[in-house]
């Protein structure tokens, strides 16, 4: 059974068992506009929640991506290096950034569910 959570910094994490797939939200990709570059974390890196892990860039802006939870990076989406437009096309799917093995599932409790995230972004666009 998988469940999706969001952060206030516009990352999402889709949790299955002890692993999570992470990316940026549809709202975030819309705000950034055409994404031109994504810098991804090295698999094997251990991170703490809220660590800066990746960077996503449009022509005129750069945003840091933070670890939604603590854990170990087990994969990153190398397709984005060649084709960062995937993030615009499918932010919640093919445009994922990295996979993480979650070391502290309790941290998920502090994240937002879809309804809470939608409420957060409703006034921002």
């Amino acid at each position: 059974m998988s469940k999706i959570y969001y952060t206030e910094d516009h990352e999402w994490i889709l949790v299955e068992g002890d692993t999570g797939i992470c990316g940026i939200s549809e709202f975030a990709q819309e705000q950034l506009g055409d994404i031109v570059y994504v810098e991804l974390p090295e698999p094997g890196t251990t991170v703490a929640q809220n660590d800066e892990l990746a960077v996503v860039e449009s022509v005129k802006a750069a945003s840091e991506i933070y670890a939604p939870v603590s854990g170990e990076i087990i994969a990153s989406n190398e397709d984005l290096v060649e084709d960062p437009a995937k993030v615009n096309a499918d932010a919640m799917g093919d445009g994922w950034f990295f996979k993480i093995r979650i070391s502290n599932a309790k941290e998920l409790e502090g994240l937002l569910d879809k309804a809470a995230y939608d409420a957060l972004t409703a006034g921002q666009s």
Binding site: Y37, E57, S58, V59, K60, A61, A62
Partner: peptide, 12 residues
């Protein structure tokens, strides 16, 4: 590649 530069990235 302006995102490397100060007018966008400021202190970074």
């Amino acid at each position: 590649l302006s995102t490397r530069e100060q007018h966008i990235r400021r202190e970074k």
